[in-house]
Design a protein around this nucleic acid. Structure first.
Length: 107
DNA sequence: CAGTTGACGGCCC
DNA sequence: GGGGCCGCCAACT
């Protein structure tokens, strides 16, 4: 199989590793992918979203706990609904990062 | 082929 | 404390 994974694939892999009921920031995903400077690339990768059915891009939020406007891949409000269904709490429309930011011990 | 943009993050003023 | 600018890699035009 592919020994060398493309940057995108690494990002998708990191996103798919986000546990249920938790969220991660772009920078965090970038760090998991290998480099935290890929924050923009992460955003672009999720924007491409070739597997939205398996890539929980809705679990990826900005460091402010706010989701991007462009998240309207099927309804921005949909994103909140999905996260709440997993037990994620919100504060004024923002994800409670203090409680649900993905805790990555390997970082 | 080269230039610009992009679903961001972090640092500087 | 708040606002603005730059930096990073990759993809798109």
């Amino acid at each position: 199989m592919d020994k060398e994974k493309n940057t995108f694939e690494r990002i998708y892999e990191a996103v798919k590793r986000i546990p249920k009921g938790q969220v991660a920031t772009y920078g965090q995903i970038a760090a998991l992918a290998g480099n935290r400077r890929w924050a923009r690339v992460v955003g672009y990768a999720l924007h491409a979203n070739p597997d939205s059915e398996h890539i929980p891009c809705y679990r990826v939020v900005t460091k402010d706990g706010n989701v991007s406007q462009a998240f309207a891949f099927g309804g921005a409000n949909r994103q909140v609904e999905l996260l709440m269904a997993e037990g994620v709490t919100f504060l004024d429309g923002r994800v409670d990062m203090e409680k649900h930011q993905w805790d990555t011990p390997w970082l």
